[in-house]
Amino acid sequence: MRFDIISCQPDLLESPFSHSILKRAQNKGLVEVHIHDLRKFAINKHGQIDDYAFGGGAGMVMMIEPIDKCISGLQAELSYDAIIYMTPDGQTLNQKIANQFSLLQNVIILCGHYKGVDERVRQKFITHEISIGDYVLSGGELGAAVLADAIIRIVPGVLNDESSALTDSFQDGLLAPPVYTRPADYKGLQVPEVLLSGDTPKVEQWRFEQAITRTRERRPDLLNE
């Protein structure tokens, strides 16, 4: 799977893709991540990629021309399955969306900035608009990293134990149950006996019941869905 991430602050994206699972996915050859500096497609030698909004108002707007040059250049080399714009007014990211994107091959992610992009960018290029929550960040870079992480970790072969991703919170519409590790008794805090029993069916039943209970207490909206 290939990600082309377009940003006017590309340095913000270096760290997330240089460590842990995201780095290993690239080292295994399962994922490619290419970060493109939008200022290289600026309209002048000053690196301008933004301008005042027609009609006035506070804040600057990302211009269509640099974005057009960058995306059109990428499309001249590859066919893309999705062009995603990170924006607060997009569809809120969830596990189902991440699962769907993980089946794609080539994806462009455009990081918003300032007051957003010229609306014609959205009309001409964007196939999906994604938000990571009902709040505003300084730019779309952190959101792009979150989206890419959610997708990459479920690409087949990325995790050493692929069943691990299938038991994550939200994969079955429930929150994950409590988990424990050694020691079984720590300063009087005990691991539930059923987890020490070796009885796999009972363990799985306990985990399912705990997942239901935790979801009902913390995210009852998931049960309603």
Rank of each mutant, 00 (worst) to 15 (best):
F3K: 11
I6R: 08
Q9F: 15
D11K: 09
D11H: 06
L13G: 01
L13Y: 06
S15D: 11
P16A: 12
S18K: 09
S20K: 05
I21M: 14
K23M: 13
R24Y: 11
A25H: 04
N27A: 13
K28M: 08
G29V: 09
H34W: 02
H34I: 11
I35D: 00
R39G: 01
K40F: 03
F41A: 06
F41L: 06
A42Q: 09
H46C: 04
Q48G: 15
D50C: 00
D50Q: 09
A53Y: 04
A53T: 05
G57A: 06
V61A: 01
V61R: 08
V61Y: 06
M62H: 00
M63Q: 11
M63T: 10
M63A: 07
P66K: 01
I67H: 03
C70L: 12
I71Q: 05
S72Y: 00
G73E: 08
G73Y: 07
Q75I: 02
A76E: 15
L78A: 10
I83K: 08
T87Y: 06
P88L: 11
D89G: 12
Q91D: 12
Q91N: 08
N94L: 10
N94W: 10
A98P: 12
Q100T: 14
Q100N: 14
F101E: 04
S102K: 05
L103H: 14
Q105D: 11
V107F: 10
I108A: 13
G112W: 05
G112C: 02
Y114D: 01
K115L: 11
K115C: 09
G116S: 04
G116W: 05
D118K: 01
V121R: 02
V121I: 14
Q123C: 10
Q123V: 13
T127F: 07
E129S: 07
S131K: 00
S131G: 00
D134F: 05
V136K: 07
L137A: 04
S138G: 11
G139S: 14
E141Q: 10
L142F: 14
L142Q: 12
A144E: 01
A148T: 13
I151M: 13
I152Q: 08
I154V: 10
V155I: 14
P156C: 04
V158F: 03
V158E: 05
D161C: 05
D168Q: 03
S169C: 09
D172T: 12
D172F: 03
G173F: 07
L174T: 05
L174Q: 07
L175T: 09
P177Y: 15
V179F: 12
Y180G: 05
T181E: 06
R182C: 10
R182S: 12
D185T: 11
Y186P: 09
K187I: 08
K187D: 13
K187A: 12
Q190K: 14
V191H: 03
V194F: 04
L196Y: 06
D199V: 15
P201M: 04
K202H: 07
K202D: 10
F208T: 08
E209V: 04
E209Y: 03
Q210D: 00
T213Y: 10
P220N: 07
L222W: 00
E225K: 14
E225G: 04
E225M: 12
